[in-house]
Design a protein around this nucleic acid. Structure first.
Lengths: 290, 290
DNA sequence: CGTGCCAGGTGCCAT
DNA sequence: ATGGCACTTGGCACG
């Protein structure tokens, strides 16, 4: 079996399962009413409430409430988990050093504990990063400007590595800074530091700086102008044509709303199948509840 | 009941539970073998593997593997969850607009689905933030320097709001930038922008800039020196005396290690109770497995 | 809504 | 370990 679950366990039984799971590297989720205390880079305390706690075999621990993407409390990978029963509470403690940090979760009631055997060898393939943008620039340097010739990436300077370094049609050195999304003043400052550094390497050659990004804030634009730097607008991802959507048989829809949604539980958005264009070849073996 | 669980459910049964849970604002966890595809600000795809999926009633969805603190894929609050059964897979789709993003999780096997009723009214109390540091500076301006007189916080300038603005013993304007931890070059740049902006408001008054932080990197120190800015070392949190640790009855210990720990499942670290100094008043009603 | 900035940021890779 | 920086950064406050 790959998932072992206890419902409403005693603290002692929950402890046994945690022992086993921690011992053989299984992932654990706990759900119940608990308080959370953290002390480390900062300090925090959280009163009683129902939360989902996830303990990973790599030493990560996450405490999630019913809101937000970020855990309300956590501990990063590399920590040591311990569990014990004290004062009528099941306590899960996670600690690390450098820096010294400690997280305590104290359950007064445990609704469920589950230990999972996880096997996952797949790696995420992500596109649209700054890395992609760099490849695009190298593929087509004219995106920066006509006549631009890239000569190096990640070229080291006294101010740190420059994304793309090259020269323009007139042979002047060009420093290119890439950003995959809209940039603010800090990017202008970063670019200027690079230009200044390269300028010391090539005195009197009139080193230029170009910021490549989808867009720029007003203030950053001003800063660039003040400092004689240029901006070139380039979308972070190549045109990926049409995104097909539409899913025919929508079921189990949740609006994603805090809570006070009142009376809106209508489930009568049923007959909307067969939207428009034939999208994916998804129209096979549909099994829809109801 | 506050947790409803299905073990090894059919896709159809899992779908029913998802419907209900999405409908009445319960939190859901799914565990099983799945693939994940994302398209939005970037694009990603993840091959088959065992993962834990968390769907929150606020529209958040998280896909966690057995490693790392960050979900391998996710969708932020405010999204709309839908579930359906297609091509022999249970598909959970989460979408939003502005920006348009879509996440699809396709389960080929579901080991467990659970719906939780979450009630959590407690707010996290966090200490050690920049806000705390600001209060300390205002309490004791001499931490910045002898004779410093704060006049405003978050004072607006052309370069943005200044953390603390005031004047020194000689009546010169002082811009104070606060950082709760060790700072790098970007903080120096930020402070310089502020000083330049205030300098335009008070020409010829010799506006000064002070960076207050626990410590500073070498490069940032150089930049500050070049630009005539000062640095003052201040610890982010007031001395909180002694941190007590030690927990006597450690049980269910997990090292926090990738996986290849070989033979180390020994559970014979038992007789280490009663460590050293009498720590907390925790020594009551201890119930320890074994 | 965009704009700007802090965060217990996290993660990755360099020295 | 420290440093520098990208990130589907996330989150909040403000215009």
């Amino acid at each position: 079996m790959t998932a072992t679950t206890l419902h409403r366990p005693t603290h002692r039984d929950a402890l046994y399962l945690l022992e086993e799971a921690f011992g053989d590297g299984r992932m654990v989720t706990l759900f119940g009413r608990c308080t959370v205390d953290y002390d480390g880079r900062a300090t925090s305390s959280l009163g009683p409430g129902d939360r989902l706690v996830v303990c990973k075999p790599d030493g990560t621990i996450l405490v999630h409430t019913d809101e937000k993407r970020k855990p309300v409390n956590w501990q990063p990978p590399g920590c040591t988990h311990r569990a014990s029963v004290r004062d009528g509470h099941l306590r899960v403690r996670s600690e690390r050093s450098t820096p010294t940090e400690r997280l305590d979760v104290a359950f007064e009631r445990i609704d469920q504990v589950t230990a999972y055997e996880v096997t996952d060898r797949s790696d995420l393939r992500l596109q649209g990063s700054e890395e992609d943008l760099r490849r695009r620039i190298l593929d087509d340097p004219a995106l920066v400007e006509e006549g631009f010739v890239p000569q190096a990436t990640e070229r080291e300077t006294a101010a740190g590595p420059v994304d793309v370094f090259g020269e323009d049609a007139a042979g002047r050195p060009v420093v290119v800074e890439l950003k995959r999304r809209r940039v603010g003043p800090s990017a202008a400052g970063q670019l200027q530091r690079y230009v200044e550094a390269v300028d010391e390497e090539f005195p009197d050659e009139g080193v230029r700086g170009v910021l490549v990004a989808p867009s720029v804030t007003d203030r950053a634009r001003e800063l660039l102008a003040e400092r004689g730097l240029s901006f070139v607008a380039v979308e972070p991802v190549a045109d990926e044509g049409d995104d097909e959507s539409g899913d025919g048989d929508s079921v189990a829809k949740a609006e994603g709303d805090g809570g006070d949604d009142g009376a809106d539980a209508g489930r009568d958005d049923g007959p909307d199948a067969g939207d428009d264009a034939a999208d994916e070849s998804d129209d096979a073996a549909d099994d829809t509840a109801e």
